[in-house]
Design a protein around this nucleic acid. Structure first.
Lengths: 218, 218, 218, 218
DNA sequence: TATGAATGAGGCTTCATTCAT
DNA sequence: GATGAATGAAGCCTCATTCAT
């Protein structure tokens, strides 16, 4: 399922109060996504957001307690879209292949929702609560996936704690790669093929050859 | 080599104009490091920095064009300290062991210079130019290291382009891991052992078993 | 007669349009009394009052032209309750004793209607028209009482104009004393006995001894 | 000593930094006095005050932590002027005559500093800390005066506690009288003679005749 | 060169009132 | 008549930067 901003209600449809209310809130939300995606959290003033949404500044506070409250909701909400998107694109087995699919789907999602990248990367500092929430969501799900792969025999000799660390690494890899390869002056582009292949190699056989001296005894 | 703030000039020494000048600039610089490390870029107002430095606000602008200019210089400067620190702690061979040493040394450096973590993580958004500079420094050096390892036979079947991507992944792994494991309410702590072991495993043999279905044909 | 908030109409009673209307207005009125008494005029926003009344904000403007209009009505209305209360507690003679009774009854009323104190004290600035109205009510009645006492021979050698000034003084005394002695962190308490006795002494024999030098010739 | 707004520094005088600083603060202070005196605390916005002072809004915060901080300082400062003013106009004996002098001097002061009245009356709600401070100042001094009069034999049969209550009454009398008689649409006028005489009578012989029934036994 | 007061744009938020349903 | 979302003016405060001394 892809992320689609809610279409404006058709002119024919008469909205009742509840619907109008939800629609206004959604307009603000969409505007915020757009503004943060384009200018970043720091420049996402209430004035800018409401202007983009086409409502008065005061209206904002009929729907959100504060600017911060809205900002905190941004990432978790889009994050769910991402999870669904990736899930839909991933096979049901538990092998490395599916991990590569997830990896690729992440970049596909970025292309679909170009605001996501900036929202994701900046949230840590500007919307820490939302960031935490999002990260917990992702992290939990990811660890579960790895556990299943271990049960299926596709992964061996990793403890649960190590899985947690691994998830951080894989998330970090995605984050940094997306910054490096998917940005081009505000535009979002697909990562080159060697990024995918490098990831596959790292994940399927590591970086260094197996040797007797693998730093273990440190 | 560890990061040492420049000592105050001895009372006996009469400083000439040039020296006084440099000394004032250094004071501002050190103060900025401290303030950003403790409160983050967003809270690092010129007022706060100059107060910490013990100079007047106006003095700031005798040494830096703008607040931003100073902030951009912060990370590259400390980044160099880091490179030297890690280099000093790493053996001269080109095996996985050295990679693990580098990884560990990164965390050791964080313990020595607790401000670094915050400066590194936030710089991307608040000092993008400095971030880029720092990142290029690191990236170039890292790729060179990997190339040497390849020459030495410790790594095989990775192209230069793939190395670049790998470096992003390894940096991302460090970044995310340090956030997750080295922060504890403002204090900086050493990462648990399973973080190191997980990294070693990932780097020496990957995450998934070698199988026939490794996602290659995508 | 004590101040009794209008009881909710019994469930059985079907209200016609006019009654419903009056009942809604009364709810708003009672809510305003409560809110102003507890938080003061400044914090008595329309939102707060209507929430307390259990009606929508818009409903407010079906019954009052503006927020201010309601606020202006608050004091005069409760003021009448006070007059009746004090009257009921005061003997029919015209001596100093009755004045002391009135004084005491004022404080008793405050205990019965704790909102009154705040409404009275703040009205001057936040509801000046209502304040004036209330004050004229009281003042007129008070002067009349003093005149009767003069006719009865209990007061001598005061002109009507002086009575007016005296009334201001006595009202001022009540006002300041109530602030000083009847407030205790939002709670209303009875004034200590020495307040009553001091008032009696002032009113029956003044503060200073009669001397030849009483400042008359100024 | 009368209250005189600080004269603008002569053009000839070159002010050093400290003096300029103090002068700016004083300008803001004087402007606030003027604005609050004319429009009341509620309308005394920072914008209005700084405009009146002829400085930028930001300048305000170089001299005061917040709008409230300034407002709290207003009354105590002018209150001291009042105390000095009254003291200078009062004889050294301890009889009723001096009390009348104090009373009259209060109204004279109001004429000299017309802003005082509004500042005094509104402070209770808009600057409660400053109000308390002022009131404690006045109250303490006033009780001391009454005690001396008692020692001198000019007052008899009042306890210290009763003095405190009396002071509240006398302050309240002044407060209410000044509102009633000294205001005339923003202008301040002298109170009519019968106000003074009524006060003298109240203070020297009370309001009611001495009778056997003076309400004592209540 | 150092100082620090002055500047003023811009940010967030509140709230009385309006109005379409 | 009741509703409650929408409005937008106005308020307080922050802060990077300038400039006269």
């Amino acid at each position: 399922m892809t992320h689609v901003p809610h279409a404006a209600p058709g002119k024919i449809t008469k909205l009742n109060r509840v619907e109008r209310n939800a629609w206004t809130k959604q307009k603000i939300f969409d505007a915020a996504t757009k503004v943060v995606g384009k200018y970043g959290y720091a420049e996402a003033s209430v004035a800018r957001i409401t202007e983009e949404a086409g409502v008065a500044q005061g209206t904002f506070y009929n729907h959100f307690e504060s600017r911060q409250e809205l900002l905190e909701q941004l990432l978790p909400k889009i994050g769910l879209d991402m999870v669904r998107f990736i899930h839909a694109r991933t096979g049901t087995a538990h092998t490395a292949r599916q991990e590569i699919e997830r990896f690729s789907a992440f970049f596909d999602f970025i292309l679909e929702v170009p605001e996501f990248l900036r929202i994701l990367n900046e949230a840590e500092f500007f919307a820490p609560i939302g960031y935490q929430k999002h990260f917990d969501n992702i992290s939990t799900a990811y660890v579960r996936i790895l556990r299943r792969a271990r049960q299926a025999g596709a992964i061996i000799d990793f403890s649960d704690e190590e899985f947690e660390a691994i998830v951080q690494m894989l998330m970090g890899a995605r984050g940094y790669l997306s910054r490096r390869y998917s940005y081009a002056e505000g535009k979002v582009t697909a990562p080159p093929a060697h990024v995918i292949s490098a990831y596959r190699k790292l994940v399927t056989r590591g970086l260094f050859n197996a040797t007797k001296d693998n730093g273990h005894e440190r």
